[in-house]
Computed example of a mutant assay.
Amino acid sequence: MCSDPEPPVPGSPRAPALFRDPDLIAAAVRGCPSVYRLTAGPFGASAACLAGRRVDGVEIAGEAVRVHVVGRYGPTMAEIGAEVRDALADVIPGAEVDVVVEDLATETDPAVLGARRPTLNPAHE
């Protein structure tokens, strides 16, 4: 569960050496062609907590950043990880970045296609 602490001010004693913005991290990861979406993981615990909201799929602990993603089917997990790390190199230079590929989305996955799951009776759709 997220508490709502005041975010550290860059340059203050509480701020990490490199201040990380979870929104910028999430935006960079979402821009990766091999990433379908960020995910908070199977128990919803993988998120950065900000005042009044969460950024799912981004965890920040000191100098380390971990992102949890659902990748697109095709590239290997190593390729997805490398692509995410490359995208984050400019956003958080010098940071240790761990990429957790939680799942893969395929072209037949209704969530990817934006379609609803087929039903036994199409008249009820």
Rank of each mutant, 00 (worst) to 15 (best):
30 R>T: 00
50 L>A: 06
53 R>L: 04
111 A>L: 09
125 E>R: 09
60 I>N: 11
39 T>V: 11
90 D>A: 04
36 Y>T: 03
113 L>F: 04
111 A>Y: 01
40 A>R: 10
83 E>L: 07
91 V>Q: 00
114 G>E: 12
100 V>Q: 07
70 V>L: 06
66 R>C: 01
82 A>N: 15
71 G>A: 03
80 I>P: 00
124 H>A: 04
62 G>Y: 09
94 G>I: 11
68 H>A: 01
70 V>R: 07
82 A>L: 15
9 V>Q: 14
78 A>W: 01
125 E>T: 00
101 V>M: 05
28 A>I: 08
115 A>C: 14
83 E>P: 13
29 V>E: 02
47 A>M: 03
13 P>N: 08
22 P>S: 05
21 D>T: 04
13 P>E: 12
59 E>M: 00
12 S>I: 09
73 Y>L: 02
49 C>N: 14
92 I>Y: 06
30 R>C: 11
10 P>A: 06
22 P>Q: 05
98 D>Q: 15
98 D>G: 15
53 R>C: 11
117 R>K: 15
33 P>L: 12
26 A>N: 02
20 R>M: 15
30 R>I: 02
68 H>R: 03
27 A>N: 00
44 G>D: 00
73 Y>I: 02
2 C>D: 03
55 V>A: 08
107 E>H: 14
3 S>V: 15
113 L>P: 00
42 P>F: 07
81 G>S: 01
27 A>Q: 06
78 A>Y: 13
94 G>V: 13
65 V>C: 05
25 I>C: 01
103 D>C: 10
77 M>R: 14
44 G>T: 02
32 C>E: 07
20 R>N: 14
79 E>Q: 15
73 Y>C: 10
54 R>M: 12
81 G>Y: 02
98 D>E: 15
84 V>K: 12
46 S>N: 14
46 S>V: 05
87 A>T: 03
2 C>F: 05
125 E>V: 07
78 A>F: 13
95 A>T: 12
23 D>F: 03
5 P>R: 01
28 A>D: 03
84 V>G: 05
68 H>T: 05
2 C>V: 08
2 C>L: 04
12 S>F: 06
80 I>G: 03
56 D>R: 02
78 A>V: 15
36 Y>R: 06
88 L>P: 00
86 D>Q: 08
27 A>M: 06
117 R>H: 15
76 T>K: 11
14 R>I: 13
35 V>G: 03
17 A>G: 13
53 R>W: 09
45 A>T: 15
107 E>S: 14
29 V>L: 12
92 I>C: 00
93 P>Y: 08
53 R>N: 10
28 A>P: 06
47 A>L: 11
118 P>S: 01
15 A>F: 10
33 P>M: 04
125 E>S: 03
1 M>N: 01
9 V>R: 14
5 P>H: 06
43 F>H: 12
40 A>C: 11
94 G>W: 13
109 D>E: 08
43 F>K: 12
34 S>K: 01
21 D>K: 04
2 C>A: 05
41 G>V: 01
36 Y>H: 11
59 E>I: 11
77 M>F: 13
17 A>Q: 14
70 V>Q: 06
